[in-house]
């Protein structure tokens, strides 16, 4: 679906090449996968995201979308149609003054007939559960609602894949929950491939696969469970782990043999209860 091979990129500040942002990066994302990308600010996550729909082109190596090289200029719009993008600031990606007209923006650009646009817009708005707001002005909606409109705007292109660059960074807990629910629904109902760039570990824990980036390359690429159990490594990269994982891990470090392969409250409680039982039976 999405493939990066030996990807190399650096920003040019006009005078000299400044530090390499992406350094020989290799990544292969399969159809229907939900991949979370973690990394501190400036590690190259956003730069990577912009390569997936040809907003940026590799300076070295290649990026393929469904087998099409993003360097192929003829195919640029085919690629963009297949990869929907959602960005951080909802105010700066909504084009129109009415929700449904904004969602219609991409299909209009693709030259789709009016009746089909109507259908796509309604479907997309229903998928993100914003249909009853279709006539509203976007600037009067909450952050979470705006971001769902932005998602609807992307899926109205009927893309194969959706790439989100910190879509929850500017939202409050309720807005974040709304967006995560929408992502999980997209994956379950439409089998959408989702790439989610985030700073929130609880969001990454919901993914099928977590990719941790540092300094322009991938440090870890594994299931959330296997990634978050590497507490020390994540901390050294300036990242967090879910509180329960951290607790179980620190208990372990103090010499209490609690299983720290846990991501949720229930799992952690189970692990602690197991440990308590083992002490008691040992007595």
């Amino acid at each position: 679906m999405l493939k990066a091979e030996n990807l190399l990129y650096s920003y040019d500040n006009g005078v000299k090449k400044v530090d390499t942002v992406l350094d020989n990066l290799n990544l292969n994302i399969k159809k229907g996968e939900f991949v979370a990308v973690l990394g501190h600010n400036g590690c190259g996550k956003s730069t990577l995201a912009k390569h997936f729909n040809g907003l940026l082109l590799p300076l070295g190596g290649d990026v393929y979308v469904q087998g099409i090289n993003t360097k192929d200029e003829e195919m640029l719009w085919t690629i963009r149609r297949q990869v929907g993008m959602v960005f951080q600031n909802p105010d700066n990606q909504i084009v129109a003054n009415v929700v449904e007209e904004d969602v219609a923006f991409a299909p209009e650009n693709l030259g789709i007939p009016s009746a089909e646009i109507r259908k796509r817009v309604d479907d997309a708005l229903k998928t993100v559960d914003m249909y009853r707001y279709r006539k509203h002005a976007p600037h009067l909606l909450s952050g979470g609602q705006k971001q769902r409109v932005a998602i609807a705007g992307a899926i109205a292109m009927r893309p194969e894949c959706i790439v989100m660059d910190e879509p929850t960074a500017m939202l409050d807990p309720m807005g974040r929950a709304e967006v995560m629910e929408t992502i999980l629904k997209l994956k379950a109902q439409e089998n959408m491939t989702v790439v989610l760039i985030t700073h929130y570990m609880d969001e990454a824990a919901m993914a099928d696969r977590v990719v941790v980036m540092d300094d322009g390359h991938i440090v870890v690429d594994d299931t959330p469970r296997n990634v978050f159990s590497q507490v020390e490594l994540l901390k050294s990269l300036g990242l967090d782990v879910p509180q329960v994982t951290e607790l179980a891990y620190s208990l372990n470090k103090e010499g209490f043999d609690v299983n720290y392969d846990v991501l949720t409250v229930t799992e952690c409680a189970d692990a602690i209860m197991d440990y308590v039982r083992s002490i008691k039976s040992g007595n």
Binding site: N53, L55, Q93, V95, F105, A106, N109
Partner: peptide, 11 residues
């Protein structure tokens, strides 16, 4: 940012 978002939506 808006220009990037519009381009991403095939404008």
């Amino acid at each position: 940012e808006l220009a990037i978002a519009m381009e991403s939506r095939c404008y």
